[in-house]
């Protein structure tokens, strides 16, 4: 029961946060010089004052600020993010078209970074002075220091140009024939470089943190108890120690989720990945305000949902989270 109410509480806060994002978005739009009427007029090659008045009335732009704000929020909450004049499509349609590609990239990269990072962290914590441990430290420093686009271009040159192992860009090859497996295989091949590029820095972060927290946990009294019970080393590491050392890593992963998304913008640009990042880049260049705002709103939504999920995973890992006493 307590858990249910806290989750409801979290969702309530999340919705409030989203509305705050919307108000901010809308206010920025409102403060900026010019409005949609100008854009439309510009797009149709100029218009006189009467027509402008007409357009403003049609779009409700003659209403007071708060009425407009209310209408905007109401629209967004019913998934109407406005109309892109650049693409001449509803923004919602545009975004939904690109979302799967981006989510695929972001989620795969995050999971890859978490799994490999945690494994490297655990292995190196078991033997803190071994070769692997030093290697992890080295890779972590490298991954942390290298900018995403640099890593991306380097990998492109190495594994796409020199050794032609992976395609250089895009998400699917339309010329690929064959059934489901052939197409999935093609998708996987396209994913490798972008996912590795995007996850490097996060993999570095997670493995460092996991190594540190694992080493700390291995020195605790309850691990001594587990040894005193006669458990095997694997039971001690993977049952008793791992679950305890995951909390800080999951917390960090939650915090870094927004960074993964912004990293995806760069990675999509480098690998011409047809996702939200590419869309954002194009709409910024085209000054397509509704689309940019839509993407901002959508990113905020994804980050908030990501935090909610992080919170729930933390609760699953550690029963002390959120309980008092």
């Amino acid at each position: 029961m307590v858990i249910l109410t806290t989750i409801l509480q979290r969702i309530f806060y999340a919705v409030m946060l989203l509305i705050a994002v919307l108000v901010l978005n809308f206010s920025m739009l409102h403060l900026a010089p010019g409005d949609i009427a100008d854009t439309i007029a510009q797009a149709s090659g100029g218009a006189d004052a009467d027509v402008m008045e007409q357009i403003r009335r049609d779009y409700g732009l003659d209403q007071p600020f708060f009425v407009q704000l209310g209408q905007y929020i109401g629209k967004v909450l019913s998934f109407d993010l406005g109309h892109s004049f650049f693409y001449n499509q509803p923004v919602t349609t545009l975004i939904l078209e690109k979302v799967p590609a981006t989510l695929l990239l972001v989620i795969t990269a995050q999971i890859f970074a978490l799994v490999v990072g945690v494994l490297l962290g655990v292995f190196s914590a078991r033997n803190p002075n071994g070769m692997l441990s030093h290697f992890v430290t080295f890779v972590a420093l490298l991954g942390y220091a290298a900018p995403v686009f640099w890593t991306g271009i380097l990998l492109l040159i190495a594994f796409s140009l020199n050794i032609q192992l992976f395609p250089s860009g895009g998400m699917i090859d339309v010329t690929v024939e064959g059934g489901f497996f052939a197409q999935t295989w093609d998708l996987l091949k396209h994913m490798v470089l972008p996912v590795v590029t995007l996850s490097t820095i996060f993999l570095a972060l997670y493995s460092r943190l996991c190594r540190a927290s694992m080493m700390e946990v291995l020195g605790t009294d309850y691990i001594r108890t587990a040894k005193a019970k006669g458990l095997s080393e694997n039971e001690i590491i993977y049952k008793h120690a791992l679950k305890n050392s995951l909390s800080p890593v999951v917390t960090l992963a939650g915090i870094q989720f927004s960074a993964v998304i912004s990293g995806a913008v760069l990675v999509e640009a480098v690998f011409s990945w047809p996702g939200l990042g590419s869309l954002a880049l194009q709409s910024i260049i085209a000054r397509d305000t509704p689309t940019i705002l839509g993407i901002l709103f959508f990113s905020a939504l994804v980050v908030i949902v990501g935090n909610l999920i992080t919170d729930m995973i933390l609760r699953m890992i550690d029963p002390r989270v959120g309980s008092k006493g």
Partner: peptide
């Protein structure tokens, strides 16, 4: 260990695994 010879420790507050 834990079968023929077992041991309890000084620190009951931290000797049990908090997540099980």
């Amino acid at each position: 260990r834990g079968n023929d010879i077992s041991m309890i420790f000084q620190e009951p507050m931290t000797s049990l695994n908090p997540v099980y």
